[in-house]
Design a binder for these strands. Structure first.
Ligand SMILES: [Mn+2]
Ligand SMILES: [Mn+2]
Ligand SMILES: [Zn+2]
Ligand SMILES: [Zn+2]
Lengths: 151, 151
DNA sequence: CTAAGATTGAGGATCATTCTCAAAAAGGTC
DNA sequence: GACCTTTTTGAGAATGATCCTCAATCTTAG
């Protein structure tokens, strides 16, 4: 829905350097995936990506998504649905966020928590160590409900 | 780790009535699954359950877990791992909680958030509607890190 | 231009999960 | 108990998302 038109040069350059660290190139196929996720502005499943760009081969898309994940360019979401779901890494969009997940259709939208909430989440991460020697480093928050489309 | 020994009669009765609503029986196999999750006190994956009780047949276990989920007796967790992971429904344990997830071995432990944090989470759920017509009803919080065993 | 290495994509392999179906078990009624 | 009906079971087959293989093609370095 967001439809940002062009991937900023700076983002492309960052992607190039992260891939380079792994001896990987920023090919046309990989650019397509990054540009598509940038333009869409929300996480996309693999079938959505294949449909959005008919030139993508399934096996190559799967492989490239993993490469981009290893390069910390993309982030694979944890979902209930049957398909892998991907978004740009947070440090590339500069936008720490969480997700609204529709229980009916499974669509995922971004959502920014209030500063107060983020502060308490950080505190919870710091204090988790008390529980059975677990050391927390990060948090993940999803709000579950019904999207505009499904109501 | 928790090793609660016996499932309280009240819990069994609740399970019986929830299954009855769907015309389903509380069979030995289903009792084994419920008792095992009660005793273990943390979410278990399907292979863990099969290993813990060699009498369980894989295909029946899968089927019964789904039946128990439909009866709202069990809850299927969303994980990165390859296996389905289950726990008792929160309203059966009377214990709203979240999860500590080990990035290394994938083990899941329960975790209770502070009242302040829960209050802000509830507030976030209520306010989510402002974002593009999404109506949130529930929240899910995971803390990601390293378990005692993996450190 | 050439050689070395990376990438591609069609098709096959993998594997968690679901489905099928005949046998067994559980209730209900007498 | 016997009898009938419905549910449950479990072994094996089917499904399907994902990953792997490998020969062909593309890129880059020299
Ligand atoms: Mn997102
Ligand atoms: Mn739990
Ligand atoms: Zn929806
Ligand atoms: Zn661990």
């Amino acid at each position: 829905m967001s439809s940002r038109t062009r991937v900023p040069d700076e983002l492309h350059e960052t992607v190039v350097s992260r891939l380079a660290r792994l001896g990987q190139r920023y090919t046309t196929n990989r650019k397509s995936l990054v540009a598509m996720l940038w333009a869409e502005g929300r996480p996309m499943t693999l079938p959505e990506m294949l449909e959005a760009d008919a030139a993508l081969a399934q096996s190559s898309a799967y492989r490239n998504l993993v490469v981009l994940e290893e390069a910390q360019v993309l982030h694979r979401l944890v979902t209930t649905g049957p398909f892998a779901c991907w978004e740009l890494a947070e440090d590339l969009t500069g936008h720490h966020h969480h997700h609204l997940i529709c229980r009916s259709c499974g669509v995922v939208e971004d959502f920014t928590a209030s500063p107060d909430l983020e502060r308490l989440l950080g505190k919870a991460v710091g204090q988790a160590g008390s529980a059975a020697g677990f050391v927390a480093e990060d948090h993940r928050l999803d709000l579950l409900g019904t999207c505009n489309n499904c109501r």
